[in-house]
Simulated scan of single mutants.
Amino acid sequence: MTIVDVRILVEGASDVEVVSKALQGLALGSEYNVTISSIIPTTNIEIAKSAAAGADLLIIATDADRVGRDLAERLFSELGEMVGHVERMKLPLGHDLEHVDVELVRKELKNALIRAGLKSLQILPEYMALRNQLLDLKGRYDGLVEEYKKLRGEYDALLRAHEELKEENEKLKEENEGLKALLENSKNVYTIEEAWKSLFPAEPVPDEGYIGRAVERLGLAGKVIVGQGYIFAEDKALVDELLKTVYLSRVIKEEPLKPPRPPTEEPQNPEPEAGEGPDIVENPEVRPEDIEELPKGL
């Protein structure tokens, strides 16, 4: 159990002797779970602030006369926010230890502790409400911490991805600048549209990416460069061959070849149809020598 830190503020050194004498007959630790950490003799506000700061309970013990009451009220208003709780205690008039009723001081001290405890009970419901609010806020805080960690992880991942994309963009930018410079400084540069229309004026110009893939698949990388609407090659004939191949692939893709028709069988020895026969020559001319030759043939 936590020990309550109690400090007592008195007007002078003689009051310290009186209060100390009264404390000798009190078992504050076992009865009230408190400890008197210091007795401060001063009427100076700044010294009192420094000595009382952080106390759980501050008891202002001044004389019961008007001067003591005024001092107690001033200290109460100045020190109220610096300690957990402030309680007023009246000391009997007179500062001579031999003539002061120590038992009366002891009783007044116990009453001050009891009043402080009862006032603390009055604010207990408010304390419990604040405690519940604190626990609720702590739960929300823990949830926000977990959400923050998750978002932080996602942010770091996005940051790394951004850096990678940035590096890749810089690399592509350098390659694009190099390609652009190469195209601008080269003589063998042809626009895709002009090169295509020169071969196939009635056909639509194919997509640049399609031509680029054809370059890769035909193994022409390094010999032919396609980009920014241009084609670069050391030989115009190579460009023409490339575009013809692209055209042929498009034709095959769009109009697949039809399967060949099976051959029809024809009769080996066709029979003549009725009515057909050897040609007959009307009014043939028979020569005498032909007739003479017939017996020889027979």
Rank of each mutant, 00 (worst) to 15 (best):
V6K: 07
S120C: 00
N169V: 15
P41G: 03
P295E: 14
Y247W: 02
V239I: 12
E292D: 06
E255G: 00
I36K: 08
L134H: 10
L23W: 01
I45N: 12
T264C: 07
I60D: 03
R131W: 15
E282I: 05
E276M: 08
A233Q: 06
M1A: 10
L179W: 14
V6A: 10
K149T: 01
E81P: 02
R287S: 06
L57W: 13
Y148P: 04
S50E: 15
K223Q: 13
K296N: 05
E292I: 13
T62A: 03
S30I: 13
D235F: 07
L172M: 15
V224S: 03
G54R: 07
R66F: 05
N188E: 08
K90V: 10
I114A: 05
R160P: 11
A214I: 14
V16F: 09
G153Y: 07
L137C: 02
S77H: 00
A13D: 02
D156I: 13
L172F: 15
N44T: 03
E126G: 06
S50C: 09
P288I: 02
R261N: 03
S30K: 13
H162F: 08
S198K: 10
L199F: 05
L124M: 14
V239E: 07
D63H: 08
L134I: 07
E285P: 00
V4E: 06
Y247F: 07
